[in-house]
Simulated scan of single mutants.
Amino acid sequence: MAAPMVKKSWMRNSFNIAAVVLMLLFLGTDCEAHLSPKFYDNTCPNALSTIRTAIRTAVSRERRMAASLVRLHFHDCFVQGCDASILLKDAERNAFQNKDSVRGYEVIDSAKAEVEKTCPGVVSCADILALAARDASVAVGGPSWTVKLGRRDSTTASLTLAERELPTAADSLDKLISNFAGKGLSARDMVALSGSHTLGQARCITFRNRIYDDESDIDAGFASTRKRRCPVTGGDQNLAALDLATPNSFDNNYFKNLIQKKGLLASDQVLFSGGSTDSVVSEYSRSPATFKSDFASAMIKMSEIEPLIGSAGQIRRICSAAN
């Protein structure tokens, strides 16, 4: 009777070993399809430093570029996920939320070209966008954060999706909260990310209604100052700093402005208008450290919205066109 028992034991052990091997193979494949901060350590070890140098150079030439690069990453991730689809020509770039407004494409192209010199076909444009946003923040005194890498690039972009899913300057608080929730971001994340408006500028066409609306709650003196560069008609593309006091520094002054009814865009001021996010704005206005910490955390969450990983998508040779 011993022989059959040995045979059964051997078969059972063989089955268990096979099951373990299959599980390890599955886990190995699953792990490879996850983002990791060490993704390029072996394939392109100088990628991060090369990109950082390109971003620092661009921001040193024009301080405003820091805000533009953070916004470029945001507008990419909100449409099809963080897949560099916004960089493809003649699609998302032409959405009304982007056209004549979103900028920094040439900075990403330049960083990509530098990386291609040493590691052709390795580093994705989507990853460069994510790193550029972080490096731009640091370049103007903002927080740093660990960027997980391994995104791949989309071969398509959608004008329709961009116009449907990107926020607008006239959105209500409820609409903003719903929009961000649809991307896995909380109302607190939304307020923190909106704090990037401590930098950058807006076009007259995006805030004209607010400064000339007699029913608006805008501070009268602030509105009067903004009218100088934004007439009732004409001057649509004239620019005004989102934060009048410290437009080139990453600080918490944006939130102090909102409490004083000096939010330039209607979608800024709704964050402090008697609604559910008032308490978060107040907290950030008191604690720059809390704001910076939450901003970094929210940027990490945003940068991981529906990335293309594994064998999905491609690594574009140039960021403005599919291979």
Rank of each mutant, 00 (worst) to 15 (best):
G274K: 07
L244G: 03
N46Q: 13
G104D: 01
S303V: 07
A66P: 08
M1R: 12
D100Q: 13
D214H: 13
A187N: 02
F291Q: 01
R228I: 14
N248I: 12
I211E: 01
S196P: 01
A84H: 02
L35W: 08
M65N: 13
L258M: 09
A91N: 12
L166G: 01
I128E: 01
D243C: 09
K261M: 09
A187K: 14
S137G: 02
Q314D: 07
F96K: 10
K8P: 00
L22P: 00
S276W: 04
G310W: 12
I108Y: 03
R316L: 06
G28Q: 00
D90L: 12
V140F: 03
K38T: 14
R52I: 01
V20H: 00
L199E: 07
F180S: 05
A192V: 02
Y40T: 07
I318L: 07
L129C: 03
I305L: 10
R208L: 05
A202V: 11
I259E: 06
E306N: 15
K292P: 00
A33M: 10
S124A: 14
E114I: 10
I315E: 06
R316A: 05
C31F: 11
F272W: 10
D153Y: 06
A133S: 14
K227P: 00
A181T: 13
I218A: 04
C230F: 07
A3C: 03
Q260K: 15
I300H: 07
A133F: 07
R93M: 05
R52N: 14
C319F: 08
D135G: 01
A33D: 09
A321K: 15
C119M: 08
L176P: 00
R203S: 12
T160H: 12
A126S: 12
L129P: 01
L271G: 04
S285F: 08
D189M: 06
T43K: 14
L173H: 04
A187P: 02
L271C: 06
R316N: 10
R226V: 11
N16K: 15
A3D: 12
D76V: 04
D219S: 08
A181K: 14
T29F: 08
G235M: 08
V123C: 02
L193R: 10
F39L: 03
G182P: 04
L199H: 06
F180L: 06
K301T: 09
S49D: 11
A66L: 09
E114S: 15
V123P: 00
G142Y: 09
A298R: 06
I108W: 03
G313V: 09
V79G: 05
S178P: 00
R93V: 05
I259Q: 10
D214V: 12
G141F: 08
R210T: 06
I318N: 10
D219V: 06
E304C: 05
V115G: 02
S158T: 11
A126R: 05
P167D: 12
A67C: 02
N179G: 08
V115I: 13
R226C: 11
A240F: 03
R286N: 11
